[in-house]
């Protein structure tokens, strides 16, 4: 029993030296901003992909196929080594904030491809008969889209969008290659300096993510069921 309480004591001293909550908070911030960025970019891409204009459709498809098949790590390394160090594209004079912004851009660019597909799959859940019925009662393009198609499409897109958001939350750890002070980097530092409590450190960070991720999963599942279109 003594060794257990000793282990616990040294775990506590490790927690005092390093601020785990602050690191996880950085991940949450990254999730929020990159979520916003990828939602905007992904919606534009989805609109391009479902538009009747071939060049827009083609450009949207090219974007999705390129970025969905590229590892996020490459995109992130590219943002830092190429955009910042080689091409000197600085977004802020503050060194750390510059990296933070580039990490958000890298995450947004990658996840926009998945957001686009989520929204598109939402549009695909709407049966053709809905649009035909809208036409039959005399609605023109915009009212039909606004009143009939899009409300159903958004509801169908909630579940896949939620999955993308969860993937994004976990992928914010990759921002560690952009030397953003987030959880994965801190965990590495903590284990290197306090290898005696390696298990407890991993458990702490893992549980931190479980606590962040599970509610998002439950919430989006609940929302998608509550708002599901009964067909």
């Amino acid at each position: 029993m003594d060794s257990l309480s000793e282990y616990f004591q040294s775990y506590l001293t490790a927690l005092e030296t390093y601020d785990v909550v602050a690191a996880l908070w950085v991940n949450i911030q990254l999730t929020f901003w990159a979520g916003l960025g990828s939602l905007v970019l992904g919606t534009v891409l989805a609109l391009m992909r479902i538009s009747p204009v071939p060049s827009f459709r083609w450009a949207g498809a090219a974007y999705v196929n390129i970025f969905r098949n590229t590892p996020l790590t490459i995109i992130m390394v590219f943002c830092i080594l190429v955009a910042v160090f080689q091409l000197q594209l600085n977004l802020s004079s503050d060194f750390d904030f510059n990296f933070f912004l580039w990490a958000i851009i890298g995450l947004s660019v990658y996840h926009a491809a998945f957001v686009c597909e989520a929204i598109r799959s939402g549009v695909n859940t709407v049966p053709l008969g809905q649009a035909e019925a809208a036409r039959a009662i005399g609605l023109s393009f915009l009212p039909a889209a606004r009143l009939i198609v899009l409300p159903q499409a958004f509801r169908g897109a909630i579940a896949p969008l939620g999955n993308t958001l969860i993937a994004l939350t976990k992928n914010t750890t990759v921002a560690t290659v952009a030397s953003v002070a987030e959880a994965a980097g801190l965990m590495k530092t903590m284990i290197e300096f306090r290898p005696d409590v390696i298990m407890a450190i991993f458990a702490t960070f893992a549980l931190g993510f479980v606590v962040i991720v599970i509610p998002i999963g439950l919430l989006t599942t609940w929302l998608s069921k509550k708002l599901a279109v009964a067909r």
Partner: peptide, 8 residues
């Protein structure tokens, strides 16, 4: 499924 791969 909830823990980031990079952490593991």
């Amino acid at each position: 499924r909830a823990v980031p791969v990079l952490l593991m």
